[in-house]
Write a protein that binds this DNA or RNA. Structure first.
Length: 320
DNA sequence: AAGTTACACAACCGCGGACCT
DNA sequence: CAGGTCCGCGGTTGTGTAACT
């Protein structure tokens, strides 16, 4: 048989913790430790709380050396880098930031950092050089003919990539997609309904995103053919201008493993765009992928990238 | 001043893997 | 090995408060 039930859900208190409850919990843990059993702890400590609730309160708030308050620029950078590398693995990210909890970082990302990142990618129209609203990728797809080409302010107008949705129905409400949409909008990407099959890695017949040659290097993949979702990942390419001073990295990112018929396995880091003459890279990009079912890809990038050392290849046996 | 909306943060919920009996 | 609970995680919701109308 197993263990005793966690707690009597009807008799436990919920909601915000009172100072008195905090005091009891702190006192108990200081004297006895957690004892490796959160379920039994509240009863022993004289608290009418679920063990899970006690654990959360302790780990996220009462534990010593917890850091509250503003995040530093360094912390921002670490969070951005790790998020784009491993996704929303908050506990792993928190492990890299002493004093910060996963919950803290998660909240910070959702409420501030994501917006901050978006704001740093403010677009403008390159056709007439006046400010305009950022069109989401989804909106651009819905009305491709009306979608203005967007670009970063410091990128010249010829420095475009075009991004395509295979069926023109690129849309999703998941947050990664929203981020990517906004990023696409600010990176000179134009979505429309055409398909660029030659560089397609789409294994599921769904809404792959394709970078138009000659700039295309890497492609998105829709593993299960259900549009963008948590199981879907996108990765993007990069390009540079001839003068070696302006490097643009397209933010199209994600990570994941696909157990589809092609047995593709990917583990990607992400990227962002930057102009190394104006600012250091916001995010870096590393990664690679391998596929046992006929797909091979390699993809790497680092902050010392230049057009001679960086490569990105995407090949798919029998798919061309 | 009152009502409404937006935001930040704390806490809860449900799931999956680890573990116990 | 099976059946059950525990633990930790990530997503979501709830709550308090500031800003706005």
């Amino acid at each position: 048989m197993g263990r005793a039930p966690c707690c009597d859900k009807l008799s436990v208190k919920k909601g915000p913790w009172s100072p008195e409850e905090d005091r009891k919990l702190k006192e108990y843990i200081h004297k006895n430790g957690t004892g490796g059993n959160w379920i039994a702890l509240p009863h022993k400590a004289g608290l009418k709380r679920c063990g899970k609730s006690c654990r959360l309160r302790w780990l996220n708030y009462l534990r010593p050396n917890i850091k509250h308050g503003d995040f530093s620029d360094d912390e921002d950078r670490i969070i951005c880098n790790l998020f784009t590398t491993i996704g929303s693995r908050w506990s792993i990210i928190a492990a890299q930031l002493p004093g910060r909890t996963d919950n803290d970082i998660k909240n910070y990302w959702n409420t501030k950092l994501k917006k901050k990142l978006m704001h740093s990618l403010q677009p403008y129209t390159t056709h007439n050089h006046h400010s305009t609203t950022v069109p989401s990728a989804a909106a651009a797809v819905a009305s491709p003919e009306a979608a203005p080409i967007m670009s970063l302010q410091h990128l010249s107008s010829h420095d475009y990539s075009h991004i395509y949705s295979s069926d023109g129905s690129y849309s999703s409400n998941n947050s990664m997609t929203s981020l990517l949409s906004a990023a696409a909008g600010s990176l000179g990407l134009l979505l429309n309904g055409e398909q660029q099959a030659t560089t397609c890695l789409d294994s599921g017949g769904g809404h792959g995103i394709y970078l138009q040659e000659p700039y295309a290097t890497t492609i998105s993949s829709n593993v299960h053919g259900h549009g963008l979702s948590a199981e879907t990942f996108i990765f993007g390419g990069f390009q540079s201008q001839e003068d070696h001073h302006h490097h643009k990295v397209l933010l199209l990112s994600g990570s994941g493993a696909a157990n589809n018929q092609l047995d593709e396995q990917y583990n990607f880091a992400a990227s962002c765009c930057y102009d190394d003459e104006k600012a250091p890279p916001l995010l870096s990009l590393t990664g690679g992928a391998d596929g046992a079912g006929g797909t091979t890809s390699s993809f790497f990038y680092d902050s010392t990238y230049n057009e001679h050392t960086a490569t990105a290849t995407t090949t798919r046996a029998g798919a061309q």
